[in-house]
Design a protein around this nucleic acid. Structure first.
Length: 644
RNA sequence: GCUGCUAUAGCUCAGUCGGUAGAGCACGUCAUUGGUAAUGACGAGGUCAUCGGUCCGAAUCCGAUUAGCAGCUCCA
């Protein structure tokens, strides 16, 4: 006799039985239930219950349920591939956040036509309604089975399993795959599937390994859900900054200038200027000292900082790096070693700390040719950079200050709700990539963990994501394709101070080593602009909009009045455009939705005679006739508030 | 850097079998004059990304380069 506790009720059973049978006996199971959580672990509906347990039934709406569903879809894909391309070798095929993929080793490239053929075959497999059975084998038999089936990658995976691992397989029809599971009860539930793309991916994610073919797909329990998903995806892609940022004339690129070197057009440049002035002023209010340091330096500087050893491939080098009879320069990929010179300028007292140094800093990184992406990943960018030189006991307080500033920036930009936190740590197994000793890293990461936990930050840990000189708090954000990038970073650097011989005279007269925080307040302007464009679909909040007000005179006779209003607004710093194409167009008032202007002022006889403007707000629609003074004062208040 | 795809007018795209280029929007001129995305007529715009090859002949076929897109790997 044992108890199975469902959230709804508790049922007692005499003999072991499957989750499905237990749920059926409890009269809880429906067709929507595709998996279950038993004792906190996701299992299939055929999982055998043998003792007291808590069981929660899962549907596709549960993240864990969707995961099982997608994983089964990946197996169906693999089955279809083995049917149509029997020579293909299987590797791995997990469920991921956006659906599922399966990596194959195949000599034949999977073209769009091939994907569509595979999709049809998958639908066939779904219709065939194969039950999905789990079975386990001892290691020797498991290896024999995979060798017999000619699956070298699976053989390798089995060899890499720990000695005591349970080696499980899943069978559906003629198809068998090494897999930990769990899976759906049958292939029939995967009612709607779409293979979205095929790309290359390295075996085990290592670029020294063979490149496999990765087929991505999405799957749903119904065609309607698939359709809705695809439409939502298409909708998101309409906000792609790389498309609308060009259409709206924020930026462009030119072949002869090169990859990753965008031209910021007047509109994009104006937005960035607005952000820059705002953040420089804000930092000044928070006790930052502004610096301006060179964009390049001799190789000797980077030798001290460690960049020469750890970052040479990422730098643009001017001159022959191996010829020591001549000077060799490199454009700076980071500001740290330059800004440290500000501190090093003279002997420093503990009284001067914390020293908060800020700089609007342009950096150059020679990214690999396939890495560039619109304004998000470029080879030259400008960052709201800063370094804080601290007494050790000031670390927590100053870190908090950096975090609060970053938060303030994200809130003001409206991006905060889209961000997540990552505590980026080193990988002790890859000491070649990092400076410093394990003791130094343990210390830095220990201190940082304490600070993060104290601030109550909900972070996930990223191993091997640290900078070469220290751990980071990275504030991550996703673009419209779901790809995650770092928007803001706050780093604790306990190594470079030593390398550069930075020290201060403490109150006891002793020379002490300062701690350094390396941080940005709102990240790099290009990337931030890109994410703002995507967030707002190009319709930026008034305070940062490149054109805040557009004036539309209806006909020639109103043009003078329109330009008068423009002058009045501009005198207060408002960014105004007059669309006088109306003069020759007459009753056709052409407005450009793509320009996403917050306010339009329409001027006809009524307005001109009454000294008003007809205000049309992007947000609130038609607001009727308003005096120019009233409009201006409301607008200035809104801009001042810096909120949408 | 790797895998796959792409490059024709400012933009979005047609262009069949290899026979020297087309539309819509945008732009210019003229006409129209009045209210929130598309008035009409006419006009101007292209060494078909670049270089090379095959061919009597290349936008079209082949190769290389450059640039763009998605993914991988790296990274703000």
């Amino acid at each position: 006799m044992f108890k199975v506790v469902f959230p709804e009720k508790t049922v007692e059973f005499e003999a072991p039985l499957s989750v499905f049978d237990a749920a059926k006996a409890a009269e809880l199971v429906t067709r929507a239930h595709i998996a279950a959580e038993v004792g906190g672990q996701t299992v299939g509906m055929t999982h055998l219950l043998t003792g007291d347990c808590e069981v929660k039934l899962l549907t596709f709406a549960d993240a864990a349920g969707k995961h099982v569903f997608d994983h089964t879809a990946a197996h169906i894909l693999a089955q279809a591939v083995k049917r149509l391309y029997p020579a293909t070798k299987l590797t791995i095929g997990p469920a991921v956040e956006s659906g599922f993929y399966y990596d194959f080793d195949s000599e034949i490239p999977f073209t769009a036509e091939a994907l569509s053929a595979l999709e049809s075959e998958m639908k066939k497999i779904v219709k065939e309604n194969h039950l999905i059975e789990r079975f386990e084998l001892p290691r020797a038999e498991a290896l024999a089975l995979m060798e017999e089936k000619g699956e070298p990658y699976k053989v390798q995976l089995i060899h890499e399993l720990p000695e005591d691992a349970v080696i499980s397989f899943y069978r559906q029809g003629e198809f068998v795959d090494l897999c930990a599971g769990p899976h759906l009860f049958s292939t029939a539930a995967v009612k709607a599937v779409k293979l979205t793309q095929c790309t290359g991916a390295y075996w085990k994610g290592d670029q020294n390994n063979k490149m496999l073919q990765r087929v991505y797909g999405v799957a749903f329990p119904s065609k309607d859900e698939l359709k809705a998903h695809l439409e939502a995806l298409e909708e998101a892609r309409k906000r792609d900054h790389n498309k609308i940022g060009r259409e709206l004339e924020f930026f462009t690129t030119v072949e002869s200038i090169g990859q990753g070197l965008p031209i910021l057009l007047p509109k994009g440049a104006r937005v960035i200027q607005t952000l820059q002035r705002w953040i420089e002023d804000e930092e000044q209010k928070r006790g930052y000292l502004l610096t301006k340091t060179p964009l390049m330096a001799k190789r000797e500087l980077y030798k001290i900082s460690g960049h020469w050893d750890h970052y040479l491939d990422g730098m643009f080098v001017l001159g022959d790096p191996d010829d020591y009879t001549k000077d060799c320069f490199a454009l700076r990929p980071m500001t740290c070693p330059f800004q440290y010179q500000v501190f090093l300028n003279k002997k420093r007292s503990y009284r001067e700390l914390p020293m908060r140094l800020g700089e609007t800093s342009t950096l150059f990184r020679n990214e690999d040719s396939g890495e560039m992406h619109g304004l998000i990943r470029v080879r030259q960018f400008t960052i709201s950079e800063g370094h804080l030189v601290l007494r050790p006991e000031q670390l927590a307080e100053e870190f908090r200050g950096c975090f609060e500033l970053a938060n303030y920036c994200l809130e003001t930009l409206g991006l905060k709700e889209d961000c997540s936190f990552r505590f980026s740590q080193w990988d002790p197994a890859r000491t070649d990539k990092y400076e410093g000793t394990p003791e130094q890293w343990d210390h830095a990461q220990g201190v940082m963990k304490e600070i993060l936990d104290d601030l109550g930050i909900d972070y996930k840990i990223g191993i091997d994501e640290a900078a070469f000189y220290g751990p980071k708090l990275d504030i991550q954000i996703k673009n419209v394709f779901g790809k995650e990038d770092t928007l803001i970073t706050i780093q604790i650097d306990m190594l470079l101070a030593e390398k550069f011989g930075m020290e201060y005279v403490d109150s006891d007269g002793q020379m002490k080593r300062p701690y350094i925080i390396h941080r940005t307040s709102m990240g790099c302007y290009e990337r931030t602009l890109a994410l703002l464009i995507e967030k707002y679909a190009g319709a930026l909040p008034t305070w940062m909009a490149p054109v805040q007000v557009k004036i539309l005179p209806i006909g020639d006779e109103h043009a003078d009045y329109a330009y008068g209003v423009k002058k009045q607004l501009e005198a207060k710093g408002v960014r105004v455009e007059v669309d006088d194409r109306n003069e020759t167009i007459g009753k056709q008032i052409r407005t450009t939705q793509l320009e996403k202007v917050p306010y339009m002022l329409v001027i006809g006889d009524n307005e001109m005679n009454a000294g008003t403007v007809a205000v049309r707000s992007r947000k609130d629609g038609d607001k009727g006739a308003v005096s120019v003074d009233a409009f201006l004062s409301d607008l200035l208040a809104e801009i001042e508030e810096k909120r949408r």
